[in-house]
C-alpha cells in the first residue's frame, strides 16, 4: 500500500508562526511538505468556519499556530484561538472526525526550529491516525461517481 500522505492545514499568525516558518526556511530546516500554511494576521482571526471547512473539504489535520503566551501582537488573540480550538476539538469528537486532528501550538517569531518540529510531530501524528473519515468518504463518493 502507498504511504498515506496526510494533508494538513496550518493557520499561522503573521507576526510569530508565519515568521517562524520563514525562519525555518532561512535555516534550511526540513519538515514534511504535507503542511500547507494559510497566513492570518492573528491566530485569533481563525474562525470556527475556517477550521470546519478545512475538515469538510478533506483535511486530515489542522493546526492553529500563534505567538507565545504574552507575546501576542494583539494582546491575547492567541489565547482566544486556543479557547476556540479546545471547544472545536470536542465538537470534532462528537461528529466522529476526532478532536485529535486539531491542535493549537504556540511559538515566537525566532523559533524556526520549533516550527519545523511541530510540523513533523503533527504530520507523524496524523499519519498514525490515518486518513480523516471525511476524506475516505469523499473518495468513496468520487469512486462511485466514476464507476
Amino acid at each position: 500500500m502507498e504511504k498515506f500522505e496526510p494533508v494538513i492545514v496550518a493557520f499561522c499568525c503573521h507576526y510569530c508562526a508565519y515568521t517562524a516558518a520563514d525562519m525555518a526556511g532561512s535555516q534550511r530546516l526540513d519538515y514534511p511538505p504535507n503542511v500547507k500554511i494559510i497566513r492570518v494576521p492573528c491566530s485569533g482571526k481563525v474562525d470556527a468556519i475556517h477550521i470546519l471547512k478545512a475538515f469538510e473539504r478533506g483535511a486530515d489535520g489542522v493546526y492553529v499556530a500563534g505567538c507565545l503566551e504574552g507575546d501576542c501582537h494583539f494582546k491575547n488573540g492567541n489565547l482566544k484561538a486556543e479557547k476556540q480550538v479546545q471547544y472545536l476539538k470536542k465538537s470534532l469528537d462528537e461528529i466522529g472526525i476526532g478532536g485529535d486532528r486539531l491542535e493549537m501550538v504556540f511559538m515566537s517569531a525566532g523559533m524556526g526550529e520549533l516550527f519545523a518540529r511541530k510540523a513533523k510531530e503533527m504530520t507523524e501524528k496524523i499519519r498514525q491516525l490515518g486518513p480523516s473519515p471525511v476524506h475516505t468518504q469523499l473518495e468513496q463518493q468520487a469512486k462511485q461517481k466514476a464507476s
Binding site: V7, V9, K36, I38, V40, D47, I49, H50, K53, A54, R57, G58, A59, H135, L138, A142
Partner: peptide, 17 residues
C-alpha cells in the same frame, strides 16, 4: 472569510475532483 475559504476550496480541489 470568502478569501480564506477560497484558499481551502482551492487546496482541496484536486483531491475531491
Amino acid at each position: 472569510d470568502d478569501r480564506i475559504l477560497a484558499k481551502l476550496e482551492s487546496l482541496f480541489e484536486r483531491m475531491v475532483a
